[in-house]
């Protein structure tokens, strides 16, 4: 049974939950497949998948043992184009974080190409595989309608102050908050283009609920402070750093022969910011 990642805080537990493929992630909404396709804007709803090569079965693949051992995903088998979905997670306690997304997806999906950039996370895959990932990750608990965004371009928002109604800033105004119902709805697609129909995603989670669900260590506004509240996580990071440095110096010596070697951890880590953070 894998350990996934260290720590005993709710943040660490949430991270393990997101990463563990045996744990089903809670479904918070059920967006119609057609609406997911609409928001992704790679093809029109109902339109057939375009392909970049014939189905694998019709291709003459080389006599390669790796190809014989590894089954293609449904999209690869059909020869689908490679497309993407991209999420922005607000640093104001969105459930997922840019870093945790690839770790979660690589535990749960085959044949994917995720990438973390500053504040947003893209995942590329064959088109029908991308749609399956997009549907699941818009529907489930990793997505909050106010603090998570589906953004193909002009992705800024992760580290920007929230709008007055607690929704993550979006320069393209792809989504809007219905003042009467409180629902967040997408009025533009992922890249900010026109959609033939609005897509309602639903109500945002409360701040208390977000703090319970987040996978983000953040020493501000009541967030979990890694160094003080869950030092084990920092200790394991320090351990990895120690081991990397050991290997970079002389990987043929024993670690306990190194002057200054300690057991795991960085005792009495200096904390430069007070609890609650500095805004």
């Amino acid at each position: 049974m894998p350990q996934f990642t260290p720590g005993s805080s709710s943040v660490a537990e949430n991270r393990r939950k997101f990463m563990d493929p045996t744990k089903k992630l809670e479904k918070l909404r059920d967006i119609a497949e057609e609406d997911v396709v609409r928001m992704l804007a790679h093809r029109a709803p109902g339109e057939a998948y375009k392909s970049i090569h014939p189905p694998i079965e019709e291709l003459e693949e080389p006599e390669c043992s790796v190809r014989e051992m590894v089954k293609p995903t449904p999209g690869a088998a059909a020869g689908d184009r490679i497309r993407y979905v991209q999420f922005t997670d607000s640093m104001f306690f969105a459930p997922a974080t840019p870093r945790i997304r690839p770790m979660m997806w690589f535990n749960r999906y085959r044949g994917i190409d995720p990438g973390v950039l500053s504040g947003r996370t893209i995942v590329e895959a064959r088109e029908r595989d991308v749609e399956a990932i997009a549907k699941e990750y818009i529907d489930n608990e990793t997505y909050d309608t106010a603090r998570t965004g589906l953004r193909g371009r002009t992705v800024h928002g992760h580290s920007v102050r929230l709008d007055q109604d607690g929704v993550m800033f979006d320069a393209l105004r792809r989504s809007t908050r219905d003042a009467r119902t409180g629902d967040i709805k997408y009025i533009k697609d992922m890249v900010g283009g026109a959609m033939d129909k609005e897509v309602t995603l639903g109500k945002p989670l409360s701040d208390d609920e977000l703090l319970k669900r987040t996978t983000m260590f953040r020493n501000a506004q009541g967030g979990t402070w890694m160094e003080a509240d869950d030092p084990e996580v920092a200790d394991v990071i320090a351990q990895i750093h120690w081991n990397r440095t050991w290997g970079g110096f002389q990987p043929f010596i024993k670690r306990n022969e190194i002057k200054g070697d300690k057991d795991a951890g960085v005792k009495e880590m200096k904390l430069y910011t007070p609890r609650g953070g500095v805004e």
């Binding site: 694998i56 293609p72 690839p102 994917i112």
Partner: peptide, 27 residues
Amino acid sequence: AAMRAGQPVPSSIMYFNELLEHETGLP
């Protein structure tokens, strides 16, 4: 091979190592 595509090689290298380090504490 699951994607029958070459493009995921850098991300596969990155997250193989990231996950291995956080699974074991070893480099």
